[in-house]
């Protein structure tokens, strides 16, 4: 039973949140078991992921139906905007932690290890510099060059930022063809990016000896690009959903926050990549 109060739509009781909690419980237990090679871990993790998927589909399905039913007024729309903005801010801070680690390692930890008493007493012969596998590992690796695949990837993501904006213009002006084409192109560019990224990881492991275990360079490299890749995947999925909804004719020139939220997210992922390109690959 839902209530319509003072214009602000308040949803009725919903079972989706507890389904989500159950999903995360299974996922956390499953992942732990899996890490420790205990039986049932994989299954539990899969169950958790499936439950999460069901929950997302159900929950967002609800939201979409409510929206299509005309239950959301301008104030609800504003709530969504605030909510999405705060969410992206939290994502920024999540990446900040890993960028912080990268800068700390480069500017403080590695020079420190290569200087003063550290070299004299603990790590004789260590010269530091960046990239490095650190003073105590035997791992030899080649760093990832910036001006090959990563540059192409930069181009892909930047153009996808353009296409999604172009699609948005189409939406605002009621040009359905432009909207659909723009979205489809954006999805395609995102998927191409992911494909190249996967290829690059393979290349790193197979040819360059650059692995998660390759010292602090490998660790920051893979976690930063890995979490970015994860976000691109999520973004691409969301774009596909939006594309589907656009096909179903959900969006109107003056009411399409879901589209905007996804495009904000996509631009955020873009910006993170630019920082990655500069600080992880290039400098």
């Amino acid at each position: 039973m839902s209530t319509h109060t003072g214009g602000y739509y308040l949803p009725a009781a919903s079972h989706w949140p507890v389904v989500g909690s159950f999903a995360l419980l299974c996922a956390a237990l499953g992942a732990t078991l899996l890490i420790h090679d205990l039986s049932g871990g994989g299954w539990l993790l899969a169950l958790g992921a499936a439950a999460l998927l069901v929950m997302l589909v159900g929950w967002f399905g609800n939201v979409i139906r409510e929206n299509q039913g005309g239950l959301y007024d301008a104030r609800v729309d504003r709530s969504f905007r605030w909510g999405m903005s705060w969410f992206i801010f939290s994502e920024v801070m999540f990446f900040a932690a890993f960028f912080g680690a990268l800068f700390y390692a480069r500017v403080i930890a590695v020079p420190d290890l290569a200087g003063g008493e550290q070299v004299a007493l603990l790590w004789p012969g260590y010269v530091g510099g960046w990239p490095t596998a650190g003073p105590g590992l035997e791992a030899a690796f080649t760093p990832m060059a910036a001006w090959g695949l990563p540059a192409i990837n930069t181009l892909l993501l930047l153009s996808s930022g353009v296409t999604v904006t172009w699609a948005h213009w189409g939406l605002k002006r009621g040009r359905r063809g432009q909207l659909l084409l723009g979205l489809a192109l954006t999805v395609a560019l995102g998927v191409a990016f992911l494909g190249l990224q996967a290829y690059e990881y393979r290349h790193a492991y197979v040819d360059l000896g650059l692995t998660l275990g390759a010292g602090v360079y490998g660790a920051t490299f893979f976690l930063l690009t890995g979490f970015h890749g994860l976000h691109v995947s999520i973004g691409a999925l969301m774009l596909m959903v939006i594309l589907g909804r656009a096909l179903a004719g959900h969006f109107k020139p003056d009411n399409h926050f879901a589209f905007e939220a996804v495009s904000w997210y996509w631009h955020f992922v873009d910006v993170v990549w630019l920082l990655l390109f500069v600080f992880v690959y290039w400098l």
């Binding site: 930890a109 596998a133 003073p135 602090v216 976690l223």
Partner: peptide
């Protein structure tokens, strides 16, 4: 990974 391990260029203090 070696975020917090000096041998890999990391730092527990980080």
């Amino acid at each position: 990974t070696h975020f917090f391990d000096a041998a890999g260029g990391g730092d527990p203090v980080m």
